[in-house]
Design a protein around this nucleic acid. Structure first.
Lengths: 212, 212
DNA sequence: GTCTATAAGAAGATAGAC
DNA sequence: GTCTATCTTCTTATAGAC
């Protein structure tokens, strides 16, 4: 009897929850919080609608879990960069390149953040988990900027959060607004050439700002 | 009998439609397309729900009209700047300042654009009116960049749409993501000091990029 | 052009068996 | 822990009178 639980095939709560979260991430990112359908999520899952309510209590509870999971994934990735061992300019270029590639490769994260902003970040505020994840990236940038000024590579003392925002804004906007921007200016922001040019643009803009 | 229609007080279709659009703009910007309630819009209007369907046919028809109206307002404002008469650097600083102030003062527009992106710009694509509004701003920027290079003020040949994107991204992101960004970094992006610093940051970043 | 009342259907949530 | 069937409420949209 216990043997069936041990092989971890059937009745595996972690697997079931993870399965639901992956499907729900896609549904919420595609249709928004109000537009997402619990029935649609249940259909694409290996399990049933009843289990969604069993594990996550409500549609909003599921949405919050999706949001937490997405943030955790991304901040972990950022923390693994080890930028302190690079020269200031190289460290910043690496960070910018990583942020750029990340947003490009994870449009569902970008969309979830946009959706959460439409809701005034009401769910994120209730989640301590999400808030406690973002200190390290700012400390890292602050360190890079200080070293740059000390070494005479950068000539401007900038606020690390502001620099983070300048980088994030461009990388995020390219993905978050690609449909309206693409429609208005008839430009595909996913073309390899365009992407390369944009990556160079934001890196050069940030660095020439710090050097001026 | 005709006298009552002439004084334009009661039964004024333009007034009724405009009234509905103003209320609907707020409702859609606050709750998103799926989250918005036609009943809620009707309640805040001087007229009834029946009239919304009478004039706009459906919830989506109303949403599209709201979107068109918002874009028309903004592009008209931009076109009135007369930047060709200014020196290249001053022209760019004026454009950046205007874009910055505009997005800050019109968060409901920023939200509507975010919402439209969540829907893959599906409604905007069906509206010829919206697409035909955005040529002039790019032509204006192209002219400024050319003059700047010709006069030796700018040292870099940049794509005008890219420059427009760099400016828009920062100004837009500050407003579109203020809730999540504010929550994560415990920073109020609407404080006067912060706003002034950010305005200087994006202007200096763009100009030092073009000059480098 | 405008209003009230209501049809028709969708969607979140749960009961109850296994 | 899991499933099917269903309840209840909410929401878009319309009928029909004035």
């Amino acid at each position: 009897m216990a043997a069936r639980a041990e092989n971890g095939r059937k009745n595996d709560p972690q697997r079931t929850k993870e399965d639901i979260l992956i499907v729900a991430t896609d549904e919420f990112a595609t249709h928004g919080l109000a537009g997402a359908r619990v029935d649609a999520i249940a259909e694409k899952t290996r399990t049933s609608k009843r289990m969604i309510y069993y594990y996550f209590e409500s549609k909003e509870g599921l949405y919050l879990s999706v949001l937490e999971r997405s943030y955790r994934k991304i901040r972990t990735l950022e923390a693994d960069l080890q930028l302190s061992s690079l020269a200031p300019e190289a460290a910043l270029r690496t960070l910018i390149s990583t942020t750029f590639d990340h947003d490009q490769a994870n449009p569902e994260f970008v969309r979830l953040v946009s959706i959460e902003n439409i809701h005034h970040a009401a769910h994120m505020m209730r989640s301590e988990a999400i808030r406690d994840l973002n200190v390290s990236i700012i400390e890292t940038i602050a360190g890079i900027l200080e070293r740059g000024v000390a070494e005479g590579v950068f000539h401007r003392t900038a606020d690390p959060i502001d620099v983070h925002m300048l980088i994030s804004a461009f990388c995020f906007f390219r993905v978050s607004n690609r449909y309206t921007f693409g429609t208005i200016f008839r430009r595909d922001l996913c073309e390899p050439e365009t992407m390369q040019r944009h990556k160079g643009l934001i890196a050069d803009a940030v660095l020439s700002y710090l050097k001026s």
